[in-house]
C-alpha cells in the first residue's frame, strides 16, 4: 500500500512538473500591462470545482494550462461524506487534459467540444484497507485506493472582460465521462455481459481562470 502511494506521488509530481517545464521555456512575457506584474511559473492558472467523476462529491483544486491552452493539468482534493460510501473519503487526484479545438462562438462565448485525457486518484479513508500481514503477497492484485482511467469531455466558456493586468478571466462549465481501471477491466473481460455505458462515470465542474 505504501509503495502504491509513493508511485502515486511520483506520478502526480511528474504531472505537475510538465506545465512548469513548458512555461519555463517561454522566452518572453507578453508586452501588456501584465509585464508590470510578472507571472510566476508556479502560480496556478485556474481554479476548479467539480462534482462526480469518481473524484468526490465535491472536489476543489487548481491547475495549469500550457501549449497554447491546449493542455492542462488539474490537481484536485475531493470529499465524499460517510453516508454515501460507508466512511468519509478524501481523494487526491490529478487530471491531464488535451483539448485540440476551441470554437469561438462570439466575443464572450467559446466551446471546447473535445477534451481527452486521463486521471489518477488516491483515496484516503477506506475501511478494510490491508493491515500489515493481513494478506499473503498479491492476494488481491488490485489496489483499493489508487484508481486511474481515461476521460473525455467538453466545455463551454464565458470570457469576462479582461482586467487591468491582462490576464484572461474566463469561466467554463465542463463535463467529462470517464472510467476507472477496475471498471474497464470488468468490461474488457466481459464485453458480452457488460456494456460501455455501464462503466461510464460522469463528472461536472466549473473552471475559473484568474
Amino acid at each position: 500500500m505504501k509503495r502504491r502511494f509513493f508511485t502515486f506521488c511520483a506520478l502526480a509530481a511528474t504531472a505537475l512538473s510538465v506545465p512548469a517545464a513548458a512555461l519555463a521555456s517561454e522566452p518572453t512575457l507578453p508586452a501588456s500591462p501584465a509585464a508590470a506584474e510578472p507571472k510566476s511559473w508556479y502560480r496556478p492558472r485556474h481554479l476548479v470545482l467539480q462534482t462526480g467523476g469518481g473524484l468526490g462529491m465535491v472536489a476543489v483544486g487548481a491547475g495549469y494550462t500550457y501549449l497554447n491552452d491546449k493542455v492542462e493539468t488539474d490537481i484536485l482534493l475531493g470529499y465524499v461524506p460517510k453516508k454515501f460510501a460507508g466512511s468519509t473519503l478524501t481523494l487526491a487526484s490529478a487530471k491531464l487534459l488535451y483539448s485540440p479545438f476551441t470554437v469561438r462562438l462570439s466575443d464572450q462565448w467559446q466551446v471546447k467540444p473535445v477534451s481527452v485525457g486521463a486521471y489518477l486518484s488516491y483515496t484516503h479513508g477506506t475501511l478494510n484497507d490491508e493491515e500489515r500481514g493481513q494478506y499473503t503477497k498479491d492476494y488481491y492484485w488490485f489496489s483499493s485506493d489508487t484508481r486511474y482511467g481515461p476521460l473525455a469531455g467538453g466545455r463551454v466558456t464565458y470570457v469576462r472582460p479582461t482586467k487591468g493586468n491582462g490576464r484572461p478571466r474566463t469561466v467554463s462549465l465542463y463535463y467529462d465521462l470517464s472510467s476507472n481501471d477496475l471498471y474497464l477491466h470488468s468490461y474488457l473481460t466481459n464485453t458480452k455481459g457488460l456494456s460501455i455505458s455501464q462503466i461510464l462515470v460522469l463528472g461536472l465542474g466549473v473552471k475559473v481562470d484568474f
Partner: peptide, 15 residues
C-alpha cells in the same frame, strides 16, 4: 446531468 444522476459517481466506493 439529470438523465445520468446515476452516472454522477462520487467514488467507486459510492454506494
Amino acid at each position: 446531468a439529470l438523465g445520468s444522476c446515476d452516472k454522477l459517481e462520487f467514488s467507486p466506493n459510492d454506494y
